[in-house]
Each structure stands twice: as C-alpha cells, then as structure tokens.
Design a protein around this nucleic acid. Structure first.
Lengths: 231, 231
DNA sequence: ACTCTAGGTGTACTGTGTACACCTGTCAAT
DNA sequence: ATTGACAGGTGTACACAGTACACCTAGAGT
C-alpha cells in the first residue's frame, strides 16, 4: 500500500478550535443562532456531539469564542488625528462587522464578554478620545454613553468579577496597564475606596445613564432650535 | 355541612393569567430569569406544568405577558409642559421600574415586544416631544436615538410584520391613529413608496444609528470644549 | 337530570447540554 | 520493535427543557 495515510478516501479535515468556531459562525449566519446547537454543529462537522468538547469548553465557551472572532474581524483604520472622525469611523466599522453576523448582537448582549479582542477594541477606541485631548473623566463617561445599551458591554466593564479567583483577578488587573493602557487610565480614575477601605472599581450606573440621556436630550434641544430636518 | 365550598381546608387560589404572570415575575425577581421554567413556575403554583397552558399560550407568551406587566407599572407623572424635563422624568421612571425587575432588560431585548402597554408608553413619550413643539421628523429620530439599544425596542418598531395576517395588520394600522396618535404621525412621516408602489413603513436603520452616534460625539465635543468634568 | 365546558391532570415525545467511560491512532522513549 | 502515554473522536446515558394530546372533573345552564 503506497499511501496508508490516505487509504480512506473521504478523510475529514481534523477538528480544531478555530475550525469549530468558524463552522459555527457560518452555520449561525445561514440558519440563525437558535438553530445552532451542539448537535447541529457536530452534524455539520460530521462528528459526534461530544467531540466538540475536546476543542470548546461548552456551549457558553463556543458562543464566547464566536463573538471573539467577530470582534477580531473589526477593521481598524489607522488614526488620522481627528479624534471625532476617527472614532466615528471605527464605530461604524464595528457596526458593519456586527451587521454581517446578525446573531452577534443578541449573543453579545447576553453575556459580559470581556474577551481579549473586546478589550483591544475598547482600549483602541478609548485611546482615540484620550489622545485627542479629552480628559480621562470625560472619555470615561463618553465610553459609557456610547456603550450603554448600544453595544451592551459597558455597564459591567469592571463590575462584579467574582472574588472566587482573586489570584487571576489580580494578575489581570496588573496586566491591564501594559496591554490596555487607556482602559487602565479610566479604571484608575473611577476607582474609589469602598466601605472597608479596599479599592473598588465601580461605575455609578445611574450617573452614566443620566449622562447619556442628557446628551441625547440636549442634542435634541439644539437640533430643534436650529430647525433641523433630516430631509 | 355549612360551608361545602371550603370543605378542603387548603384550597388553592384559582389560577388566572394575571396570577400566573405575577407569580412568574416574583419568581424571576428572586431566583433569576434562567431559573424560571414552565416546570418551576408550575411547582411554585402547586400545579402541574400543563395547567399553565390554559392561561398562557406558552413560554414566549408568558415572557411577553411579564414585560407587559412591567411596562404597565411605569408611573406617568402628569406633563408640566416643559418637554425636556418631562421626557427626562418619564424615562428615568421607566428605568427605575425596569431596574426593579432585573430580568426585564434581557427579556425585552430578546423580543420585538410591541405590546399595548409598550405602545402606550412610546406614544406618551412621543407626545411629549411633539406637543413640546419638536417637529415630527426630529421627534422620530430622537425616539430612535433614545431607543436604539437603550431599550431595545426601536429598530423594529414598524418593521417586518409578516404579511401572513394581512387583515389584522390592516386593522392594527387603522386603529393606530385613534389609540396612538403620535406614533401614527411618525409612521405617516416615515412612510415611503416601496419598489412596487406599495406604501412601506420603514426606518433607515443605518441613518438612525449615525444620528444617535453623532449626537453623542457632538455632545462629547461640546463638553470637551467646555472643560466639563463630572466632579 | 343532562350536557357543556373551563380548567386541572398524566403521560409521553422531541430536543437540549453535557458527564463519563471507552476506543484508537500517533508518537516518544525505551 | 515494544511500550505506553496521550490527544482526540465515539457511545451511552441522564437531567432538564417545552409542549402535544388524551383524559378527568366540578360546576353552571338548560
């Protein structure tokens, strides 16, 4: 036998986390996220359901991985220095990417999703504002205003990391300044001493909500005064 | 026997749609929305799961009913005539109501949810702007800016009612001006002729997104120029 | 007294995520 | 060459979900 390695003609491509994620995304793109189950995905890969668990932690991890890929797909145009235009462009790029995967919005909204790609995106966007000259304080609240229910990410940015794993929490916090310097700046600014003296990273949800609300209402008032029209 | 009606001492209170909904809400409040299943709810009511289906169409209908109750709980302070203050107050009232039921945000975001109470709320809010003198056009886009990912309702306001039930669709559309005059105004303004000449009610999703985005970015720019600070 | 019916019951089916034990082919070290 | 570890695919099985369908039963209207 010359080629024992290829003796079975229709040899399956080997599984891998990347392949699982991409096939899952394609499947969700065409059949909808509700149709995506471990079983349907396994069938799509001509594999038994449990095989997936060797490459993915479970359904949650699968979904996390999928949005991680989507967020990673967002194209970052190089900054031109005009912060407002740059931010606008980047956010619209993000939107068009999410738009290509209809399911991503619902999935994103259903989980905290502070994945590495997400942090990269947030840090880059934050950097545009800070480097553009906005104060860290203002940047902080603008990020909330943009994110609050617009992407579904913001309100739990630094919230409620369960203290179950203090070690890795500390590790992550210490790595933040290096990897995501702009987010770290915000975190420092938003930190305040809790009742027991421990430093607590927390954002005042109600404040952020009203901040965003007032921006929209003030904008409406201004446009009204200008007799603005969409035509 | 004097009181045959109460012969069995621990007689269950009879089921009803309202009771089912309220117990479901209480259960979701304390145990979380994920713990709410037809079975757990039935047990809470000391009843067999299938009994619920006599009062509720199914799980989807249950969830719809729950948010309907929540939205109905929003208190409407009487309008003072100052549209901006009134709108602000009403939106914060809505927020605090949703806040009392943590699950409501996720449930709301997971469905179109154009229920009667929702329409009432939207129409009332819209009315504040229009009666305050804002143009219907501006009001339309402001509603989108407020709603876009802030409540999760807006982008499908008039979209994609499946043409399966044309009769009831027409009926609903014809009833709109009476029941929700302000929404009807917006609908009329946003209507445009489709490719086949039929009137299509549709909002340009991309436009609404950029509208809201620009309001926030312009607001950020203005606050930056003013050296605004949250302290 | 008789039927009708609203409303609660019981059983059963399909589909979900996933734990656990099991094979099997590949490769490194003996 | 033999061994054995191990990465990766398999099979079976379980608990839980939503809900279709047939059934029972108590009370109201005739």
């Amino acid at each position: 036998m010359a080629a024992p390695l290829e003796s079975t003609p229709a040899r399956r491509a080997p599984l891998s986390r990347a392949r699982v994620l991409h096939v899952a995304m394609a499947y969700a793109d065409t059949h909808g996220i509700d149709a995506l189950s471990m079983r349907s995905l396994a069938q799509e890969l001509s594999v038994v359901p449990m095989a997936l668990y060797k490459h993915v932690g479970g359904k949650e991890d699968l979904l996390d991985g999928m949005i991680e890929v989507v967020v990673g797909e967002i194209v970052h145009e190089p900054a031109t220095g005009a912060w407002k235009r740059d931010a606008r462009e980047r956010i619209l790029a993000a939107r068009s990417t999410l738009q290509r995967h209809q399911w991503s919005r619902a999935v994103l909204e259903s989980r905290p999703a502070m994945t590495p790609a997400m942090l990269d995106y947030l840090d880059a966007l934050t950097g545009l504002f800070i480097d553009g000259g906005l104060s860290v304080d203002l940047t902080h609240h603008v990020m909330h205003a943009l994110g609050n229910r617009m992407w579904g990410f913001s309100q739990e940015l630094f919230a409620a990391t369960p203290p179950s794993d203090t070690a890795s929490f500390n590790a992550q916090r210490d790595a933040l300044p290096r990897q995501h310097p702009h987010l770290a700046q915000i975190a420092r600014a938003a930190a305040h001493a809790g009742p027991d003296g421990v430093l607590v990273l927390g954002c005042d949800d109600a404040f952020e909500f009203e901040f965003a609300l007032d921006i929209v209402l003030d904008g409406a008032e201004k446009l009204h005064a200008l007799n603005w029209t969409s035509g």
